[in-house]
Design a protein around this nucleic acid. Sequence first.
DNA 1: CAGCTACGTTGCGTGTACTGCAACACTCAT
DNA 2: ATGAGTGTTGCAGTACACGCAACGTAGCTG
Lengths: 252, 252
Amino acid sequence: MSQTVDRALSILPLLAEGPADLGQVADRLGVHKSTALRLLRTLHEHGLVYRQSDQRYRLGARLFALAQEAMENLDIREIAHPHLTRLNDSCGHTVHLAVYEEGEVLYIDKVDSRYPVRMYSRIGKPVAITVAAVAKLLLADLPEAERRAVAEKLDYPAYTPRSTPNAPAFLTELEKVREQGWATDLGGHEESINCVAAPIRGADGRVVAAMSVSAPNVVVSADELLTLLPLVRRTADTISGEYSGRNPVTAQ
Amino acid sequence: MSQTVDRALSILPLLAEGPADLGQVADRLGVHKSTALRLLRTLHEHGLVYRQSDQRYRLGARLFALAQEAMENLDIREIAHPHLTRLNDSCGHTVHLAVYEEGEVLYIDKVDSRYPVRMYSRIGKPVAITVAAVAKLLLADLPEAERRAVAEKLDYPAYTPRSTPNAPAFLTELEKVREQGWATDLGGHEESINCVAAPIRGADGRVVAAMSVSAPNVVVSADELLTLLPLVRRTADTISGEYSGRNPVTAQ
DNA sequence: CAGCTACGTTGCGTGTACTGCAACACTCAT
DNA sequence: ATGAGTGTTGCAGTACACGCAACGTAGCTG
Protein backbone atom coordinates (compact mmCIF):
# COMPACT_ATOMS: atom_id res chain seq x y z
CA MET A 1 0.00 0.00 0.00
CA SER A 2 1.12 3.48 -0.78
CA GLN A 3 2.12 5.56 2.21
CA THR A 4 1.48 8.93 0.64
CA VAL A 5 -1.96 8.04 -0.63
CA ASP A 6 -2.75 6.39 2.66
CA ARG A 7 -1.98 9.58 4.51
CA ALA A 8 -3.93 11.71 2.08
CA LEU A 9 -7.00 9.53 2.33
CA SER A 10 -6.80 9.52 6.11
CA ILE A 11 -7.54 13.22 5.94
CA LEU A 12 -11.02 12.65 4.59
CA PRO A 13 -12.64 10.92 7.58
CA LEU A 14 -10.82 13.40 9.75
CA LEU A 15 -12.46 16.31 7.96
CA ALA A 16 -15.77 14.51 8.02
CA GLU A 17 -15.87 15.16 11.75
CA GLY A 18 -15.80 18.85 11.04
CA PRO A 19 -13.63 21.58 9.51
CA ALA A 20 -9.99 21.70 10.58
CA ASP A 21 -7.02 23.94 9.94
CA LEU A 22 -3.63 22.96 8.61
CA GLY A 23 -2.00 22.49 12.00
CA GLN A 24 -4.73 20.19 13.26
CA VAL A 25 -4.55 18.05 10.15
CA ALA A 26 -0.78 17.80 10.38
CA ASP A 27 -0.94 16.85 14.07
CA ARG A 28 -3.55 14.17 13.63
CA LEU A 29 -1.67 12.71 10.69
CA GLY A 30 1.58 12.85 12.60
CA VAL A 31 3.40 14.61 9.76
CA HIS A 32 5.03 17.95 9.20
CA LYS A 33 2.85 20.89 8.29
CA SER A 34 4.42 21.24 4.88
CA THR A 35 3.58 17.62 4.13
CA ALA A 36 -0.02 18.07 5.21
CA LEU A 37 -0.20 21.18 3.09
CA ARG A 38 0.93 19.34 -0.01
CA LEU A 39 -1.58 16.56 0.58
CA LEU A 40 -4.41 18.99 1.21
CA ARG A 41 -3.53 20.89 -1.93
CA THR A 42 -3.74 17.73 -3.97
CA LEU A 43 -7.07 16.80 -2.44
CA HIS A 44 -8.22 20.33 -3.07
CA GLU A 45 -7.26 20.18 -6.71
CA HIS A 46 -9.47 17.14 -7.10
CA GLY A 47 -12.32 18.91 -5.36
CA LEU A 48 -12.43 16.47 -2.47
CA VAL A 49 -11.71 19.15 0.09
CA TYR A 50 -12.78 22.74 0.08
CA ARG A 51 -11.19 25.68 1.72
CA GLN A 52 -13.73 27.85 3.41
CA SER A 53 -13.45 31.56 3.95
CA ASP A 54 -11.77 31.21 7.36
CA GLN A 55 -9.04 29.19 5.63
CA ARG A 56 -10.04 25.95 7.32
CA TYR A 57 -10.60 22.87 5.25
CA ARG A 58 -13.73 20.80 4.96
CA LEU A 59 -14.97 18.08 2.65
CA GLY A 60 -15.64 19.26 -0.86
CA ALA A 61 -18.34 19.16 -3.47
CA ARG A 62 -16.84 16.59 -5.80
CA LEU A 63 -17.49 14.05 -3.10
CA PHE A 64 -21.22 14.47 -3.58
CA ALA A 65 -20.92 14.23 -7.32
CA LEU A 66 -18.88 11.03 -7.04
CA ALA A 67 -21.23 9.39 -4.56
CA GLN A 68 -23.99 10.48 -6.88
CA GLU A 69 -22.55 8.87 -9.96
CA ALA A 70 -21.59 5.76 -8.08
CA MET A 71 -25.16 5.42 -6.97
CA GLU A 72 -26.57 5.95 -10.44
CA ASN A 73 -24.36 3.23 -11.80
CA LEU A 74 -25.69 0.53 -9.52
CA ASP A 75 -27.71 -1.45 -12.00
CA ILE A 76 -29.66 -3.25 -9.30
CA ARG A 77 -31.07 0.05 -8.20
CA GLU A 78 -31.95 0.95 -11.75
CA ILE A 79 -33.81 -2.30 -12.26
CA ALA A 80 -35.46 -2.42 -8.88
CA HIS A 81 -36.73 1.12 -8.65
CA PRO A 82 -39.93 0.85 -10.73
CA HIS A 83 -40.88 -2.29 -8.81
CA LEU A 84 -40.31 -0.53 -5.53
CA THR A 85 -42.54 2.37 -6.49
CA ARG A 86 -45.22 -0.02 -7.71
CA LEU A 87 -45.09 -1.84 -4.38
CA ASN A 88 -45.29 1.46 -2.60
CA ASP A 89 -48.31 2.45 -4.69
CA SER A 90 -50.18 -0.65 -3.71
CA CYS A 91 -49.42 -0.72 0.02
CA GLY A 92 -48.55 2.87 0.83
CA HIS A 93 -45.71 2.04 3.19
CA THR A 94 -42.03 2.88 3.10
CA VAL A 95 -39.97 0.63 0.83
CA HIS A 96 -36.21 0.21 1.17
CA LEU A 97 -33.54 -1.38 -0.98
CA ALA A 98 -30.19 -2.32 0.58
CA VAL A 99 -26.92 -4.01 -0.31
CA TYR A 100 -24.03 -5.52 1.61
CA GLU A 101 -20.48 -4.30 1.18
CA GLU A 102 -17.42 -5.12 3.22
CA GLY A 103 -18.98 -5.54 6.60
CA GLU A 104 -21.57 -2.84 6.11
CA VAL A 105 -25.14 -2.79 4.89
CA LEU A 106 -26.37 0.33 3.15
CA TYR A 107 -29.66 1.58 1.87
CA ILE A 108 -29.36 2.43 -1.79
CA ASP A 109 -32.95 3.34 -2.49
CA LYS A 110 -36.07 4.32 -0.68
CA VAL A 111 -39.62 5.14 -1.69
CA ASP A 112 -42.04 6.86 0.58
CA SER A 113 -44.78 8.82 -1.07
CA ARG A 114 -46.65 9.85 2.06
CA TYR A 115 -44.29 12.15 3.90
CA PRO A 116 -41.65 14.58 2.67
CA VAL A 117 -38.79 12.56 4.04
CA ARG A 118 -35.26 13.89 3.68
CA MET A 119 -34.11 10.98 1.69
CA TYR A 120 -30.41 11.66 1.82
CA SER A 121 -30.60 11.29 5.55
CA ARG A 122 -30.78 7.56 5.03
CA ILE A 123 -29.54 6.73 1.56
CA GLY A 124 -25.93 5.81 1.88
CA LYS A 125 -26.09 5.73 5.64
CA PRO A 126 -25.10 2.44 7.24
CA VAL A 127 -28.07 0.42 8.41
CA ALA A 128 -28.62 -0.73 11.99
CA ILE A 129 -27.03 -3.95 10.93
CA THR A 130 -27.86 -6.16 13.91
CA VAL A 131 -31.61 -5.66 13.75
CA ALA A 132 -32.71 -4.50 10.30
CA ALA A 133 -34.59 -7.12 8.33
CA VAL A 134 -32.65 -6.40 5.15
CA ALA A 135 -29.35 -6.73 7.00
CA LYS A 136 -30.32 -10.17 8.28
CA LEU A 137 -31.03 -11.37 4.76
CA LEU A 138 -27.80 -10.02 3.36
CA LEU A 139 -25.65 -11.41 6.16
CA ALA A 140 -27.47 -14.73 6.24
CA ASP A 141 -26.29 -15.41 2.72
CA LEU A 142 -22.58 -14.90 3.44
CA PRO A 143 -20.33 -17.94 3.60
CA GLU A 144 -20.36 -19.51 7.07
CA ALA A 145 -16.88 -18.26 7.95
CA GLU A 146 -17.35 -14.66 6.91
CA ARG A 147 -20.78 -14.55 8.52
CA ARG A 148 -19.37 -15.59 11.86
CA ALA A 149 -16.42 -13.26 11.56
CA VAL A 150 -18.69 -10.31 10.86
CA ALA A 151 -21.12 -11.28 13.63
CA GLU A 152 -18.31 -11.47 16.18
CA LYS A 153 -16.96 -8.07 15.27
CA LEU A 154 -20.27 -6.21 15.53
CA ASP A 155 -21.56 -4.16 18.39
CA TYR A 156 -25.03 -5.05 19.58
CA PRO A 157 -26.62 -1.82 20.73
CA ALA A 158 -29.85 -2.31 22.69
CA TYR A 159 -32.02 0.06 20.70
CA THR A 160 -35.10 -1.56 22.27
CA PRO A 161 -35.79 -4.58 24.51
CA ARG A 162 -36.33 -6.56 21.33
CA SER A 163 -32.97 -5.73 19.74
CA THR A 164 -30.66 -8.62 19.00
CA PRO A 165 -28.58 -8.88 22.20
CA ASN A 166 -25.36 -10.58 21.08
CA ALA A 167 -23.51 -12.54 18.44
CA PRO A 168 -24.85 -16.05 19.20
CA ALA A 169 -28.45 -14.82 19.15
CA PHE A 170 -27.72 -13.02 15.91
CA LEU A 171 -26.22 -16.10 14.29
CA THR A 172 -29.18 -18.33 15.18
CA GLU A 173 -31.49 -15.62 13.87
CA LEU A 174 -29.49 -15.53 10.64
CA GLU A 175 -29.77 -19.30 10.38
CA LYS A 176 -33.53 -19.08 10.69
CA VAL A 177 -33.69 -16.29 8.11
CA ARG A 178 -31.53 -18.32 5.78
CA GLU A 179 -33.88 -21.28 6.01
CA GLN A 180 -37.12 -19.44 5.55
CA GLY A 181 -35.94 -17.05 2.84
CA TRP A 182 -37.35 -13.89 4.36
CA ALA A 183 -36.89 -11.76 7.45
CA THR A 184 -38.61 -9.39 9.82
CA ASP A 185 -37.70 -6.69 12.26
CA LEU A 186 -40.43 -6.34 14.85
CA GLY A 187 -39.60 -3.33 16.95
CA GLY A 188 -35.93 -4.19 17.11
CA HIS A 189 -34.69 -0.80 16.00
CA GLU A 190 -37.47 1.52 17.00
CA GLU A 191 -40.13 0.30 19.36
CA SER A 192 -43.05 1.11 17.11
CA ILE A 193 -41.65 0.21 13.70
CA ASN A 194 -41.98 -3.19 12.03
CA CYS A 195 -40.47 -4.41 8.78
CA VAL A 196 -40.76 -7.39 6.48
CA ALA A 197 -38.04 -8.08 3.96
CA ALA A 198 -37.22 -10.40 1.08
CA PRO A 199 -33.98 -11.17 -0.77
CA ILE A 200 -33.10 -10.33 -4.36
CA ARG A 201 -30.87 -12.95 -5.95
CA GLY A 202 -28.51 -12.96 -8.90
CA ALA A 203 -28.36 -15.65 -11.58
CA ASP A 204 -26.18 -17.83 -9.34
CA GLY A 205 -28.66 -17.73 -6.49
CA ARG A 206 -26.51 -15.50 -4.28
CA VAL A 207 -28.29 -12.66 -2.52
CA VAL A 208 -27.25 -9.40 -4.18
CA ALA A 209 -29.68 -7.06 -2.44
CA ALA A 210 -32.64 -7.06 -0.10
CA MET A 211 -35.82 -5.05 0.02
CA SER A 212 -38.20 -4.31 2.84
CA VAL A 213 -41.51 -2.72 3.69
CA SER A 214 -41.69 -0.77 6.95
CA ALA A 215 -44.64 0.64 8.82
CA PRO A 216 -45.31 2.00 12.30
CA ASN A 217 -47.51 0.07 14.72
CA VAL A 218 -50.03 2.84 14.82
CA VAL A 219 -50.83 2.36 11.14
CA VAL A 220 -50.79 -1.43 10.83
CA SER A 221 -50.10 -4.11 13.41
CA ALA A 222 -47.22 -6.50 12.95
CA ASP A 223 -49.67 -9.25 11.96
CA GLU A 224 -51.26 -7.09 9.33
CA LEU A 225 -47.86 -6.15 7.97
CA LEU A 226 -47.02 -9.83 7.67
CA THR A 227 -49.93 -10.30 5.30
CA LEU A 228 -47.89 -8.26 2.86
CA LEU A 229 -45.11 -10.84 2.90
CA PRO A 230 -46.26 -12.74 -0.21
CA LEU A 231 -46.44 -9.49 -2.16
CA VAL A 232 -42.98 -8.43 -0.99
CA ARG A 233 -41.51 -11.79 -1.89
CA ARG A 234 -43.18 -11.78 -5.27
CA THR A 235 -41.79 -8.32 -5.98
CA ALA A 236 -38.30 -9.38 -4.90
CA ASP A 237 -38.50 -12.44 -7.12
CA THR A 238 -39.60 -10.37 -10.08
CA ILE A 239 -36.60 -8.09 -9.58
CA SER A 240 -34.32 -11.12 -9.18
CA GLY A 241 -35.57 -12.52 -12.47
CA GLU A 242 -35.09 -9.28 -14.31
CA TYR A 243 -31.64 -8.77 -12.78
CA SER A 244 -30.54 -12.24 -13.82
CA GLY A 245 -31.58 -11.45 -17.34
CA ARG A 246 -34.35 -14.02 -17.28
CA ASN A 247 -37.87 -13.13 -18.28
CA PRO A 248 -40.10 -11.81 -15.53
CA VAL A 249 -40.55 -14.66 -13.10
CA THR A 250 -43.90 -15.95 -11.89
CA ALA A 251 -42.59 -18.14 -9.10
CA GLN A 252 -43.43 -17.30 -5.49
CA MET B 1 1.09 18.70 -5.23
CA SER B 2 1.80 15.09 -4.77
CA GLN B 3 2.12 12.94 -7.85
CA THR B 4 1.15 9.68 -6.20
CA VAL B 5 -1.94 11.07 -4.55
CA ASP B 6 -2.83 12.87 -7.73
CA ARG B 7 -2.80 9.62 -9.65
CA ALA B 8 -4.75 7.80 -7.00
CA LEU B 9 -7.46 10.43 -6.91
CA SER B 10 -7.70 10.44 -10.68
CA ILE B 11 -8.99 6.91 -10.40
CA LEU B 12 -12.15 8.01 -8.66
CA PRO B 13 -13.82 9.99 -11.46
CA LEU B 14 -12.68 7.27 -13.80
CA LEU B 15 -14.54 4.65 -11.82
CA ALA B 16 -17.51 6.96 -11.49
CA GLU B 17 -18.14 6.37 -15.18
CA GLY B 18 -18.56 2.70 -14.46
CA PRO B 19 -16.70 -0.35 -13.20
CA ALA B 20 -13.27 -1.00 -14.68
CA ASP B 21 -10.63 -3.71 -14.37
CA LEU B 22 -6.99 -3.29 -13.44
CA GLY B 23 -5.72 -3.03 -16.99
CA GLN B 24 -8.20 -0.33 -17.95
CA VAL B 25 -7.32 1.71 -14.90
CA ALA B 26 -3.59 1.39 -15.58
CA ASP B 27 -4.03 2.39 -19.21
CA ARG B 28 -6.13 5.44 -18.50
CA LEU B 29 -3.71 6.57 -15.82
CA GLY B 30 -0.76 5.94 -18.08
CA VAL B 31 1.06 3.87 -15.47
CA HIS B 32 2.21 0.30 -15.08
CA LYS B 33 -0.29 -2.28 -13.89
CA SER B 34 1.59 -2.90 -10.68
CA THR B 35 1.43 0.79 -9.87
CA ALA B 36 -2.28 0.95 -10.52
CA LEU B 37 -2.72 -2.13 -8.35
CA ARG B 38 -0.97 -0.51 -5.42
CA LEU B 39 -3.04 2.62 -5.73
CA LEU B 40 -6.27 0.67 -6.00
CA ARG B 41 -5.35 -1.38 -2.97
CA THR B 42 -4.81 1.76 -0.96
CA LEU B 43 -8.12 3.21 -2.10
CA HIS B 44 -9.72 -0.10 -1.30
CA GLU B 45 -8.33 -0.13 2.21
CA HIS B 46 -9.99 3.19 2.81
CA GLY B 47 -13.25 1.90 1.43
CA LEU B 48 -13.31 4.35 -1.45
CA VAL B 49 -13.32 1.63 -4.05
CA TYR B 50 -14.93 -1.76 -3.92
CA ARG B 51 -14.03 -4.88 -5.73
CA GLN B 52 -17.07 -6.59 -7.09
CA SER B 53 -17.45 -10.29 -7.68
CA ASP B 54 -16.14 -10.16 -11.25
CA GLN B 55 -12.95 -8.60 -9.85
CA ARG B 56 -13.63 -5.24 -11.42
CA TYR B 57 -13.41 -2.14 -9.32
CA ARG B 58 -16.13 0.39 -8.66
CA LEU B 59 -16.64 3.22 -6.22
CA GLY B 60 -17.08 2.09 -2.64
CA ALA B 61 -19.41 2.59 0.26
CA ARG B 62 -17.27 4.89 2.36
CA LEU B 63 -17.79 7.51 -0.31
CA PHE B 64 -21.48 7.66 0.56
CA ALA B 65 -20.76 7.86 4.24
CA LEU B 66 -18.29 10.70 3.67
CA ALA B 67 -20.61 12.65 1.39
CA GLN B 68 -23.23 12.04 4.03
CA GLU B 69 -21.23 13.48 6.87
CA ALA B 70 -20.03 16.37 4.78
CA MET B 71 -23.64 17.21 4.04
CA GLU B 72 -24.67 17.00 7.67
CA ASN B 73 -21.98 19.45 8.60
CA LEU B 74 -23.26 22.18 6.34
CA ASP B 75 -24.86 24.42 8.90
CA ILE B 76 -26.73 26.49 6.34
CA ARG B 77 -28.72 23.43 5.39
CA GLU B 78 -29.48 22.70 9.02
CA ILE B 79 -30.77 26.21 9.61
CA ALA B 80 -32.65 26.56 6.36
CA HIS B 81 -34.47 23.25 6.30
CA PRO B 82 -37.41 24.03 8.60
CA HIS B 83 -38.03 27.26 6.70
CA LEU B 84 -37.99 25.40 3.42
CA THR B 85 -40.57 22.89 4.60
CA ARG B 86 -42.73 25.67 5.96
CA LEU B 87 -42.59 27.45 2.61
CA ASN B 88 -43.42 24.20 0.91
CA ASP B 89 -46.39 23.71 3.22
CA SER B 90 -47.85 27.06 2.33
CA CYS B 91 -47.37 26.99 -1.43
CA GLY B 92 -47.13 23.28 -2.25
CA HIS B 93 -44.38 23.63 -4.83
CA THR B 94 -40.88 22.22 -4.98
CA VAL B 95 -38.33 24.16 -2.92
CA HIS B 96 -34.59 23.99 -3.54
CA LEU B 97 -31.55 25.16 -1.62
CA ALA B 98 -28.21 25.55 -3.44
CA VAL B 99 -24.67 26.74 -2.80
CA TYR B 100 -21.73 27.78 -4.98
CA GLU B 101 -18.38 26.09 -4.71
CA GLU B 102 -15.38 26.39 -6.99
CA GLY B 103 -17.11 26.96 -10.28
CA GLU B 104 -20.04 24.70 -9.54
CA VAL B 105 -23.48 25.21 -8.11
CA LEU B 106 -25.08 22.34 -6.22
CA TYR B 107 -28.40 21.61 -4.67
CA ILE B 108 -27.96 20.76 -1.04
CA ASP B 109 -31.58 20.43 -0.07
CA LYS B 110 -34.95 19.93 -1.63
CA VAL B 111 -38.50 19.66 -0.36
CA ASP B 112 -41.34 18.34 -2.44
CA SER B 113 -44.24 16.88 -0.58
CA ARG B 114 -46.54 16.28 -3.53
CA TYR B 115 -44.83 13.72 -5.69
CA PRO B 116 -42.60 10.79 -4.77
CA VAL B 117 -39.55 12.30 -6.43
CA ARG B 118 -36.26 10.46 -6.29
CA MET B 119 -34.57 13.11 -4.29
CA TYR B 120 -31.01 11.92 -4.55
CA SER B 121 -31.25 12.34 -8.29
CA ARG B 122 -30.79 16.02 -7.66
CA ILE B 123 -29.21 16.53 -4.28
CA GLY B 124 -25.50 16.90 -4.82
CA LYS B 125 -25.87 16.98 -8.56
CA PRO B 126 -24.44 20.03 -10.29
CA VAL B 127 -27.14 22.46 -11.32
CA ALA B 128 -27.79 23.60 -14.90
CA ILE B 129 -25.63 26.55 -14.05
CA THR B 130 -26.32 28.79 -17.03
CA VAL B 131 -30.09 28.88 -16.57
CA ALA B 132 -31.08 27.97 -13.00
CA ALA B 133 -32.39 30.89 -10.98
CA VAL B 134 -30.35 29.92 -7.91
CA ALA B 135 -27.20 29.71 -10.01
CA LYS B 136 -27.73 33.22 -11.31
CA LEU B 137 -27.97 34.58 -7.78
CA LEU B 138 -24.89 32.76 -6.57
CA LEU B 139 -22.77 33.76 -9.55
CA ALA B 140 -24.04 37.32 -9.59
CA ASP B 141 -22.52 37.84 -6.17
CA LEU B 142 -19.01 36.77 -7.15
CA PRO B 143 -16.32 39.41 -7.55
CA GLU B 144 -16.35 40.89 -11.06
CA ALA B 145 -13.19 39.12 -12.15
CA GLU B 146 -14.15 35.66 -10.99
CA ARG B 147 -17.65 36.05 -12.34
CA ARG B 148 -16.34 36.80 -15.80
CA ALA B 149 -13.77 34.04 -15.64
CA VAL B 150 -16.44 31.50 -14.72
CA ALA B 151 -18.88 32.78 -17.33
CA GLU B 152 -16.27 32.49 -20.06
CA LYS B 153 -15.38 28.93 -19.17
CA LEU B 154 -18.95 27.62 -19.15
CA ASP B 155 -20.78 25.73 -21.83
CA TYR B 156 -24.13 27.15 -22.82
CA PRO B 157 -26.30 24.20 -23.77
CA ALA B 158 -29.54 25.15 -25.51
CA TYR B 159 -31.90 23.18 -23.30
CA THR B 160 -34.78 25.22 -24.69
CA PRO B 161 -35.16 28.28 -26.96
CA ARG B 162 -35.16 30.37 -23.80
CA SER B 163 -31.86 29.05 -22.44
CA THR B 164 -29.07 31.55 -21.94
CA PRO B 165 -27.22 31.44 -25.28
CA ASN B 166 -23.71 32.63 -24.43
CA ALA B 167 -21.37 34.32 -21.99
CA PRO B 168 -22.22 37.98 -22.76
CA ALA B 169 -25.95 37.32 -22.42
CA PHE B 170 -25.27 35.50 -19.17
CA LEU B 171 -23.21 38.34 -17.76
CA THR B 172 -25.83 40.97 -18.50
CA GLU B 173 -28.44 38.69 -16.94
CA LEU B 174 -26.24 38.36 -13.86
CA GLU B 175 -25.92 42.13 -13.70
CA LYS B 176 -29.68 42.47 -13.72
CA VAL B 177 -30.08 39.79 -11.06
CA ARG B 178 -27.49 41.49 -8.93
CA GLU B 179 -29.36 44.78 -9.08
CA GLN B 180 -32.80 43.45 -8.33
CA GLY B 181 -31.79 40.95 -5.67
CA TRP B 182 -33.80 38.02 -6.99
CA ALA B 183 -33.87 35.82 -10.06
CA THR B 184 -36.12 33.70 -12.24
CA ASP B 185 -35.81 30.86 -14.65
CA LEU B 186 -38.74 30.90 -17.03
CA GLY B 187 -38.55 27.75 -19.10
CA GLY B 188 -34.81 28.04 -19.56
CA HIS B 189 -34.03 24.52 -18.44
CA GLU B 190 -37.21 22.64 -19.19
CA GLU B 191 -39.80 24.24 -21.39
CA SER B 192 -42.65 23.93 -18.92
CA ILE B 193 -40.86 24.64 -15.64
CA ASN B 194 -40.55 28.07 -14.03
CA CYS B 195 -38.64 29.09 -10.92
CA VAL B 196 -38.30 32.13 -8.70
CA ALA B 197 -35.31 32.41 -6.38
CA ALA B 198 -33.94 34.62 -3.62
CA PRO B 199 -30.48 34.91 -2.04
CA ILE B 200 -29.48 33.98 1.50
CA ARG B 201 -26.78 36.23 2.88
CA GLY B 202 -24.23 35.90 5.65
CA ALA B 203 -23.45 38.54 8.26
CA ASP B 204 -21.13 40.32 5.82
CA GLY B 205 -23.82 40.59 3.15
CA ARG B 206 -22.21 38.06 0.84
CA VAL B 207 -24.52 35.50 -0.73
CA VAL B 208 -23.87 32.14 0.93
CA ALA B 209 -26.76 30.19 -0.57
CA ALA B 210 -29.85 30.61 -2.70
CA MET B 211 -33.30 29.13 -2.53
CA SER B 212 -35.99 28.73 -5.17
CA VAL B 213 -39.56 27.65 -5.74
CA SER B 214 -40.26 25.71 -8.92
CA ALA B 215 -43.52 24.73 -10.55
CA PRO B 216 -44.63 23.44 -13.93
CA ASN B 217 -46.68 25.66 -16.24
CA VAL B 218 -49.60 23.29 -16.09
CA VAL B 219 -50.04 23.94 -12.37
CA VAL B 220 -49.40 27.67 -12.17
CA SER B 221 -48.52 30.19 -14.85
CA ALA B 222 -45.29 32.13 -14.65
CA ASP B 223 -47.22 35.22 -13.58
CA GLU B 224 -48.91 33.36 -10.77
CA LEU B 225 -45.61 31.95 -9.63
CA LEU B 226 -44.19 35.47 -9.49
CA THR B 227 -46.81 36.41 -6.93
CA LEU B 228 -44.91 34.12 -4.58
CA LEU B 229 -41.79 36.23 -4.90
CA PRO B 230 -42.40 38.33 -1.76
CA LEU B 231 -42.92 35.18 0.28
CA VAL B 232 -39.77 33.58 -1.10
CA ARG B 233 -37.73 36.69 -0.40
CA ARG B 234 -39.12 36.97 3.10
CA THR B 235 -38.23 33.35 3.80
CA ALA B 236 -34.73 33.85 2.44
CA ASP B 237 -34.29 36.94 4.59
CA THR B 238 -35.44 35.07 7.68
CA ILE B 239 -32.89 32.36 7.02
CA SER B 240 -30.22 35.01 6.39
CA GLY B 241 -31.01 36.59 9.73
CA GLU B 242 -30.85 33.33 11.58
CA TYR B 243 -27.67 32.28 9.82
CA SER B 244 -25.95 35.55 10.71
CA GLY B 245 -26.83 34.98 14.33
CA ARG B 246 -28.90 38.14 14.46
CA ASN B 247 -32.26 36.67 15.36
CA PRO B 248 -31.90 34.13 18.14
CA VAL B 249 -33.67 30.93 17.24
CA THR B 250 -37.17 30.83 18.61
CA ALA B 251 -38.62 27.53 19.76
CA GLN B 252 -40.80 25.92 17.15
C1' DC C 1 3.64 50.93 17.65
C1' DA C 2 6.96 47.62 18.63
C1' DG C 3 7.25 43.04 19.81
C1' DC C 4 5.21 38.82 20.32
C1' DT C 5 2.99 34.48 19.04
C1' DA C 6 0.56 31.55 15.84
C1' DC C 7 -0.29 30.45 11.53
C1' DG C 8 0.35 29.34 6.37
C1' DT C 9 3.83 29.19 2.87
C1' DT C 10 8.33 28.38 0.21
C1' DG C 11 12.92 26.24 -1.38
C1' DC C 12 15.95 22.71 -0.79
C1' DG C 13 19.01 18.61 0.35
C1' DT C 14 18.41 13.91 1.90
C1' DG C 15 16.74 9.40 1.79
C1' DT C 16 12.60 6.94 1.66
C1' DA C 17 9.12 4.73 -0.74
C1' DC C 18 7.19 4.70 -5.27
C1' DT C 19 7.93 3.12 -9.84
C1' DG C 20 8.36 -0.13 -13.83
C1' DC C 21 10.30 -4.34 -15.12
C1' DA C 22 10.25 -9.14 -15.52
C1' DA C 23 8.79 -13.40 -13.86
C1' DC C 24 5.07 -15.93 -11.81
C1' DA C 25 0.22 -17.77 -10.91
C1' DC C 26 -4.10 -18.34 -12.44
C1' DT C 27 -8.41 -18.78 -15.33
C1' DC C 28 -10.56 -19.39 -19.60
C1' DA C 29 -10.94 -20.42 -24.65
C1' DT C 30 -9.53 -22.75 -28.49
C1' DA D 1 -2.42 -29.21 -24.09
C1' DT D 2 -1.37 -24.60 -25.42
C1' DG D 3 -2.09 -20.06 -25.66
C1' DA D 4 -3.70 -15.44 -24.51
C1' DG D 5 -5.76 -12.92 -21.19
C1' DT D 6 -5.91 -11.70 -16.53
C1' DG D 7 -3.99 -10.26 -11.47
C1' DT D 8 0.04 -10.69 -8.42
C1' DT D 9 4.89 -10.60 -6.33
C1' DG D 10 10.04 -9.24 -5.51
C1' DC D 11 13.46 -6.32 -6.68
C1' DA D 12 16.90 -2.56 -8.05
C1' DG D 13 17.15 2.28 -9.41
C1' DT D 14 15.79 6.68 -8.87
C1' DA D 15 12.06 10.02 -8.97
C1' DC D 16 9.66 12.23 -5.62
C1' DA D 17 7.80 12.93 -1.09
C1' DC D 18 9.62 14.14 3.32
C1' DG D 19 11.05 17.33 7.17
C1' DC D 20 13.84 21.17 8.14
C1' DA D 21 14.51 25.90 8.57
C1' DA D 22 13.59 30.45 7.01
C1' DC D 23 10.21 33.73 5.47
C1' DG D 24 5.67 36.22 5.14
C1' DT D 25 1.64 37.61 7.29
C1' DA D 26 -1.75 38.30 10.30
C1' DG D 27 -3.76 39.02 15.09
C1' DC D 28 -2.76 40.04 20.10
C1' DT D 29 -0.77 42.31 24.08
C1' DG D 30 1.88 45.32 26.61
